[in-house]
């Protein structure tokens, strides 16, 4: 099933945050959206999840017109299109396991949810998801006590519990240190490759986008100015996306880099991501 944006526009007062965007994303693609802050990346993602309403234009997923959904069918769409955030947006006072199980809310009876009654199957699925992301030992801690990287992985586990068809990630690694950033990005790639879930992620670092995404969309001032493979992202294209600094020189790609060059860290990251692949047992 293909996801399609047709002439999506969003205005805030006089300011146009997203200007007539047309994009088509086939199922299973890993897409990175890059651009300077304020280019409209976040607004675009939030509109896809319908956290924000587009001012005009339409969105389609297969035969469904996503942009006109309301009520229960809108919530079903939001369930199918999981989202993770820069600030994780977990419930800090609840334990990790419950936070993960909250991903099931749309699948289950509201009354049972309100009484905080979850089945053993759901507990199994939640712990399996946590295990897959390598944070199963934190299951009974409060989410607020975890580190940023751990919280983001809890958020991914919650997204997995939604059994989504699409995963949106709004700056998932902007608040993380390089090591945790790598773990989170590896997890996203793993989900994309293993379950065939479409992943659309906002990134502020160019090299991350290059190394993880098969397709890169560049945005500037609300417009899509680049749409292609990492190989096609030439220096000229980068300059168009990020603009140039005052001297007229192009942007130095290493300036946006968070790549890990410390050998020790690479080893640690290697075992972590290895852990993810070997422990992965929940397959949709």
């Amino acid at each position: 099933m293909t996801f399609e944006l047709r002439n999506i526009t969003r205005r805030f007062g006089d300011r146009v945050a997203v200007n007539s965007v047309n994009v088509e994303i086939p199922q299973g693609q890993m897409v990175g959206v890059i651009g300077r802050s304020g280019a409209g990346k976040s607004t675009l993602l939030r509109m896809i999840n319908r956290l924000q309403e587009p001012s005009s234009g339409s969105m389609h997923f297969g035969d469904i017109e996503v942009s006109s959904l309301k009520g229960a069918s809108l919530r079903n769409w939001q369930r199918d299109c999981a989202m993770i955030f820069q600030q994780f947006n977990l419930v800090p006072r609840l334990d990790v396991l419950t936070n993960v199980m909250l991903g099931r809310l749309n699948h289950r009876s509201t009354v049972l949810s309100l009484l905080n009654i979850f089945s053993d199957d759901e507990r199994l699925a939640a712990i399996a998801a946590l295990e897959r992301l390598g944070i199963e030992q934190t299951a009974l801690q409060r989410a607020g006590t975890l580190s940023g990287g751990q919280q983001q992985r809890v958020a991914i586990a919650r997204a997995l519990m939604q059994a989504p068809k699409m995963l949106l990630a709004d700056e998932p690694i902007a608040s993380l240190d390089p090591l945790n950033a790598k773990i989170v990005m590896d997890a996203l790639r793993d989900i994309n490759e293993r379950e065939g879930i479409t992943v659309v992620t906002n990134l502020h670092t160019l090299d991350t986008a290059r190394s993880y995404c098969e397709r890169i969309i560049g945005m500037a001032h609300g417009n899509v100015v680049f749409d292609g493979t990492p190989a096609e992202l030439t220096a000229a294209a980068v300059q168009e996306i990020y603009g140039s600094d005052r001297d007229g020189a192009g942007i130095d790609e290493t300036m946006t880099s968070t790549s890990i060059n410390i050998p020790a860290a690479q080893v640690a990251a290697g075992t972590q991501s290895g852990g993810i692949s070997t422990l992965a047992s929940a397959s949709a």
């Binding site: 199918d80 759901e122 199994l124 699925a125 519990m161």
Partner: peptide
Amino acid sequence: MTTSVPSINAADRE
């Protein structure tokens, strides 16, 4: 979309 929990095989459950 189904409302079932992502399925897990019996060995893994144990």
